[in-house]
Design a protein around this nucleic acid. Structure first.
Lengths: 224, 224
DNA sequence: CAATTATTTAACGTATACATTAACAAATTC
DNA sequence: GAATTTGTTAATGTATACGTTAAATAATTG
């Protein structure tokens, strides 16, 4: 019943720690950091840090630039568009697959819970709560799709746009239309209507993408 | 005008060499290899080999299993289905984006060339030639889509199914229907009909997926 | 004799020393 | 004085030594 291995390797610790520092904004987008600095900051030698940077580079969170330090990725609006195009497509596929899988209401309970939480959060004007429930909804949707490759890619890309979402969370209107979309998607999946599920979610994500990109432009956020 | 840096690092050489060994079947799917063996085989120390295995693991070509050696990935029919689902979706998106981009016939010339080559190869009963041209067609399609993230993912996944494609190349009928699909896709892109481009390619890839998976089953290839 | 516990061993994970290389500065040449 | 060359330095890339850990084997106990 133990959760995880307690004794993680330094490399894994380095990956986790660097991710945390990046998400916390302590290693801001566009900033450069030497391996030796990071190693000292994390209290370990360069070796596990190097390994961690390779992993994080493959996930698009940073870029290893020999002799210039690792550079924390900064995304342009265009990068954001590219990522959202992929997210839109793959999540829509996941929605379609989930509908085809013929889940019972029981099996869709987490999806339902997330919807209820989003609605409660909107009513309470709680944006952070809404964002958490929204993330849970999308995670669960992709999980229900059952395709592990989609799960991996979507998870990576969500990490990459995490900052941009956090930045714009308070700039946008309360997402009430969004909640309607989620209910419609839920119904489509429950009914096993894969065409509708795909369509509804595709539109939902496309609107979210346009919203996000407009906000970035309006607020002059060239790279985040 | 020099092509590339001549002096590549050992890590990069290790990535290239291991990929080549995997594709050549010298490191067969499912086989295990110690870091030290690989290091000796490549004539370098463990360090760059370790770094290479991390990169290749992130690309899904192998799996690092502490104290059991790195295991070369072996894909089941189900893995193949997952990968093809993603390939289908993302290539179809690329087709749609390419159609929207409004390319001139000039800019579509490589696509056209690949089509002509595929037709000539079918006429000459040259499967290897057809496979090369088909790969060129798909690569160019994705390039025309213009989304770098799609290019990266599709390239990775193509690497992963490379063996399965090679294995089944001689089991399938000569792909003449396929050539019709390619022409139809070309027309849709040239006309700027993104809906049609997406649809035509989606169906094309879905049929290819079903064909491949059936062949794997029929020939009892449980993992490749 | 089965099951558990100790021992061994081999492979990995990490630190570290050092070689290599690219960026920068200085010096020299034209 | 500009441009090229040379030298310096700092950071990375690589090898290697060694500690750590998990798998396998042997030993022991009930």
């Amino acid at each position: 019943m133990s959760e995880e291995a307690k004794a993680k390797s330094q490399s894994i610790r380095a990956v986790d720690a660097l991710r945390a520092l990046i998400f916390a904004g302590e290693l801001p987008p566009g900033s450069d950091h030497l391996e030796s600095e990071l190693a000292e900051k994390l209290g370990m030698s360069r070796t596990p840090v190097r390994e961690a940077t390779l992993v994080l580079e493959s996930q698009g969170l940073l870029e290893v630039r020999p002799r210039k330090g690792v550079r924390i990725s900064a995304l342009s609006a265009d990068d954001m568009r590219e990522i959202y195009e992929v997210l839109t497509e793959l999540e829509s596929l996941a929605a379609s697959l989930a509908a085809d899988a013929g889940y019972s209401e029981q099996e869709l309970s987490r999806l339902k819970t997330a919807i209820v939480e989003m609605e409660a959060s909107v009513a309470a004007n709680d944006r952070e709560g809404w964002a958490r429930a929204d993330a849970a909804f999308h995670d669960e949707l992709v999980r229900l799709g059952g395709n592990k490759r989609i799960q991996t890619i979507v998870s990576n890309f969500n990490d990459q746009v995490r900052r941009a979402r956090a930045l714009t969370l308070h700039m946008r209107p309360m997402p009430s239309k969004s909640n309607q979309d989620h209910r419609a998607l839920y119904e489509a999946i429950a009914k096993g209507d894969s065409k509708a599920a795909r369509q509804v979610h595709w539109m939902h994500r496309t609107e979210a993408k346009d919203m996000l990109i407009n906000l970035l432009h309006q607020h002059g956020l060239r790279r985040v």
